[in-house]
Write a protein that binds this DNA or RNA. Sequence first.
DNA 1: CCAAAAGTGTTTATGATACACCCATGA
DNA 2: TCATGGGTGTATCATAAACACTTTTGG
Lengths: 248, 248
Amino acid sequence: MCLNRYLITRRMVTNGDFMGTYINKDKVLVAVDCIIFGFDPQREVLQLLLIKRDFKPKKGRWSLMGGFMKKHEDLREAAVRVLTELTGLDNIYLEQLKTFGKIDRDPVERTVSVAYSALINTTEHDSGLINQYSARWFDISEVPDLIFDHDFMVKTAIKRLQYRASVQPIGFELLPEKFTMRQLQKLYEEIFNQKLDKRNFIKKINSLKVLEKLKEKDMTSSRKGSFLYRFNHQKYQEKLKAGFVFKV
Amino acid sequence: MCLNRYLITRRMVTNGDFMGTYINKDKVLVAVDCIIFGFDPQREVLQLLLIKRDFKPKKGRWSLMGGFMKKHEDLREAAVRVLTELTGLDNIYLEQLKTFGKIDRDPVERTVSVAYSALINTTEHDSGLINQYSARWFDISEVPDLIFDHDFMVKTAIKRLQYRASVQPIGFELLPEKFTMRQLQKLYEEIFNQKLDKRNFIKKINSLKVLEKLKEKDMTSSRKGSFLYRFNHQKYQEKLKAGFVFKV
DNA sequence: CCAAAAGTGTTTATGATACACCCATGA
DNA sequence: TCATGGGTGTATCATAAACACTTTTGG
């Protein structure tokens, strides 16, 4: 590390080759921020995970889960580590969203932040664990003002989520293993922020042929009860390999 | 800068608030790499701009136009500056592509690189200027091996280009002001790497209603000559505002 | 028997695809 | 007159959108 750096510097001094290429270049902090979406199947709302900062600056304000990349760690690994440290969430697939590099985005130090995003199935992840870490789910319509440029990051993430939802059967990452058609539809309505026609929606979803209709019914939401469905990962993978586009 | 940093450190020492938040965090080099696409309307090929490195490491190898962000400069500005310094290209709209953060992507120093991409109209930009800077256009099918992870960056950029081309009338950024339908079609064929039906293509393009057919003909490619078209930016902006999706 | 949510089909409009011949011109 | 690239139209199919009534059952 320091040694390594010294050696390179020596080489540069010796033959001049690296001159102007790596020395005298500014180094800055590289942050990672995690934008985690969830869906509450009972209340049928899209949610965002936030933490309350118990340190300055902006102590007491809500923020995305963020931290700094270490020199000897991959960027993505840094995001995974930070998320785990702050929420206990483990084994989450984080997708890179965008990098935010405005000069004054962090008032303390020049920091470039790489935002990562994930969709999680809240019923599969221990919410007690999340609470323990002073993290909390917010309904997407009730997200408070966030620190720095985190509001903008969230806006960007929602746009990306809408795009992803339009080309992939995204619902299955956010719903419990078994779910009703109504829940799936509500999820899409939340993501796109618009009402969808029940009949057309079901037709389209069925045409994708990646759902199994189960014999079981969910009896909590009506007297008649509604059938439960399950996502068939194998069929999905086969279709994906065949180049099928899951336009919803 | 150094002063500023010192003050913050003092405050941290005084009240402990910043402890563990900003101090002892690793700083790394933040690079920007520019992926510039062009289109040669004569030869009807998609092209990529590269430079020959005249410095180590990888001296003599071809590479994207890259450099390091300065501490007191926006990330995007850094990309614009680097592009201008290395190619003379000015006034280019660079769109952020993705950030590459593998631990060993640069063998010399830990570097996180943010890739930016742009489409340029080669006839509007002084190619003499580019040559002066030891930059060169390569046909997309003949791009040489590049340094570091630049090959992967280019692959990623091409995918993004294909996506953008499918939802925006992208051709107009890459073509000269006046162009023929054939050139436009060839451009899309190059981007998607597949043949398109002439009649269907023209129908689709016309349905977008953002082209003006001129009275002039281009006589260089056939005896009959082919009509020239021009992109109508105003119509495009109006449609864009109205939420029109330019699916091609 | 009624309230509340579940479930189900048809029609129409729009856009995508496939496909082949005539036109204008310079040499 | 002919070789070359330019230019045009129709029929079919697939998907999207609009739209309303019946079913089930617990209370």
